[in-house]
Amino acid sequence: MLWYIAIILGIVQGIGEFLPISSSAHLILTRWFFDWDPIINQLGGNIDIVLDVALHVGTLLSVLIYFYQDWLQLLRNGLSTGIKTREGKMFWYLVAATIPGGIAGLALESTIENFVRSQVLIIAVGLAIMGIILYYVDKKAEQIVSFEEITFRQAILIGIAQALALFPGVSRSGITMTTGRLLGFSREAAAKFSFLLATPIIAGAALKQTPGIIHNIANPLFLVGTLTSAVVGLISIGFLLKYLQRNNFAVFAIYRLAIAALVVIVYMVRGA
């Protein structure tokens, strides 16, 4: 049983889904760095599907647990008072902002992921470019918009930007936080809106795999991957929200550039 692979990928997913570093890129690169694909494929069956479903379910649980009070208020007000209250407005802002990314995901996700899985240099380029953009925008942008002041227009713009996360190395949280900062959000507001916006997207990805969840819910590998990504995801969310109260995004930009450089070096050393 691939306990160690499930645990490590769960850690990578839990960190990468919420920090602006691209979970999909890191999952692909982790498997590439350690040459795990032959090991996973050798076992046959549906191990790849089990791992993929587990990681999505785990990060969905982490964001629901961390923001359960926020979501209870958003749902209660959104469904009962519509846009008459601030929480009601925010609920419908999030619904509307989810649509562009949802449409793009349904149309292009499988095609892009299948193409990119073996294109590690493209992933490296995406990591580097987005790191530079994240650093520049965060350094230049003002912090004048709090979470409570977010408008419908701003929410939609972030939702449209979220669709760009389908490209390798961009990162869903990275592009949404960067767009938020470009619009003048405080760092904490950009992160919180990004996390709330992640909930329906991650939930949608999990719902697409409902048959896989039902079929594998008792699989020990599924349980290990789910639990690991959920726990690490909770820690990542709490860490980033606290970190951004006093710090900027520079460390994540530097990390992106470092990983991109490492990928290029390893690729050249291996000669493939």
Score class of each variant (00 low, 15 high):
18 F>H: 09
20 P>E: 02
30 T>L: 12
41 N>V: 11
42 Q>L: 09
43 L>H: 14
43 L>F: 12
50 V>H: 01
54 A>S: 14
56 H>A: 03
57 V>I: 10
61 L>N: 12
62 S>P: 10
63 V>N: 04
63 V>M: 02
65 I>F: 14
75 L>T: 14
77 N>H: 12
88 G>Y: 01
89 K>V: 05
93 Y>V: 00
96 A>L: 14
100 P>F: 09
101 G>Y: 00
107 A>Q: 08
107 A>K: 12
116 V>N: 09
117 R>I: 11
126 G>C: 06
126 G>M: 03
129 I>M: 09
130 M>D: 07
136 Y>I: 10
138 D>W: 00
143 Q>R: 14
145 V>W: 07
150 I>G: 05
151 T>L: 02
154 Q>F: 10
154 Q>S: 13
156 I>W: 00
162 Q>A: 02
165 A>G: 09
166 L>K: 00
176 T>S: 05
179 T>H: 04
181 R>F: 11
187 R>Y: 06
187 R>K: 12
197 L>I: 02
199 T>G: 02
203 A>T: 03
204 G>Q: 03
212 G>F: 03
218 A>V: 12
218 A>F: 13
230 A>T: 04
232 V>L: 07
233 G>S: 11
237 I>P: 11
245 Q>K: 15
246 R>C: 06
251 V>F: 13
253 A>T: 11
254 I>R: 09
260 A>T: 00
